[in-house]
């Protein structure tokens, strides 16, 4: 028996525009002007990183002993370094290294940290204690010191820089996700899923992880900035990229001998690092205003 009266009751459809989370996000994000400009900058940087090697005006590795330490001019937009290599070309090629290193390190840290955070927050008890105390131990070292120690053990090189930056990212991600998980698991719909017989993995993946996404997105953008800075610092100290590579930190390091005579050799890679890190932080701030539920409600 199909009750027609009940069906009819809902015939009064409340009409409103179809809701879409993506559209909603974009509508709010458009209002964040600084973040919008920063995003355009980062998108351009990513494009340049990929097509850069094909469009650079000079070979970034080719020395030109007739044009050593030239200041910026129409010919060399960012001047030349101590071997006469075009700094502008080196910066463009170097952006690929900086972005790859930071993105892959943060991405790996994100995956491992999220899994650990979910497990820790969801199950609680001794599992939680072990994971969180381990994170505390990692937290007790300053980020860079920890990275230096890791590279010192593994030996210098780009891949080891990625591992080092990843390792010091894990505890931050784990702690963030654990906090969000503790909140999310109190939701009645999580209990509802349990009462339906959903497995732990399903509950974590379907009902808890989505609750952490907005906080993760904000944190990832901030973290990429930190990672770029850390990778450059390691290279600056000679623990990362090899000296002939056009990595921004390496360029900074090799230019410091000429700080008194040719400031631009240090200034140019410095500005590149500064702008990129700033852009990621601005995006992170903008995303926070849009996505963070604690701020959204005000």
């Amino acid at each position: 028996m199909q009750s027609s009266s009940l069906v009819k009751q809902d015939a009064i459809v409340v009409k409103h525009a179809k809701y879409s989370p993506v559209r909603e996000f974009w509508r709010a994000f458009k209002k964040q002007k600084a973040a919008l400009v920063a995003s355009i900058f980062i998108v351009l940087l990513i494009v340049i990183a990929f097509v850069g090697p094909y469009i650079v005006p000079y070979d970034p590795f080719e020395p030109d002993y007739n044009a050593i330490l030239q200041t910026p001019s129409a010919k060399h937009l960012a001047g030349t370094d101590e071997y006469g290599r075009d700094i502008f070309s080196r910066l463009i090629v170097g952006s690929k290294i900086s972005l790859t290193v930071s993105f892959s390190a943060v991405f790996l840290g994100l995956i491992l940290g999220t899994i650990l955070g979910l497990i820790s927050g969801y199950f609680g008890g001794w599992i939680d204690k072990i994971i969180m105390r381990t994170c505390d131990v990692l937290f007790s070292f300053p980020d860079l010191l920890l990275a230096i120690a890791i590279v010192a053990i593994l030996g210098p090189g780009i891949n080891n820089v990625i591992i080092a930056v990843m390792v010091f990212s894990i505890p931050s991600f784990a702690r963030l996700v654990r906090g969000a998980t503790l909140n999310a698991k109190e939701n009645v719909y999580v209990e509802a899923a349990k009462s339906m017989g959903a497995s732990h993995v399903r509950i974590m993946y379907k009902h808890i992880f989505p609750e952490t996404i907005s906080e993760l997105i904000i944190f990832v953008t901030m973290r990429v900035g930190t990672a770029i800075l850390a990778a450059s610092s390691l290279s600056f100290l000679g623990l990362g990229a090899s000296p002939e590579m056009p990595e921004w930190g390496v360029m900074l390091s090799s230019g410091r001998d000429y700080l008194g005579t040719a400031t631009h050799v240090v200034l140019m890679p410095g500005i590149a690092i500064f702008l990129t890190v700033l852009a990621f932080n601005l995006i992170g701030d903008g995303l926070r205003d849009v996505l963070d539920p604690k701020i959204k409600n005000n």
């Binding site: 939701n187 009645v188 719909y189 509802a192 009462s195 339906m196």
Partner: peptide, 12 residues
């Protein structure tokens, strides 16, 4: 199966 009190909180 269960039906919950708060129809706002019990649906994801």
């Amino acid at each position: 199966q269960m039906i919950f009190q708060d129809p706002y909180a019990s649906l994801n």
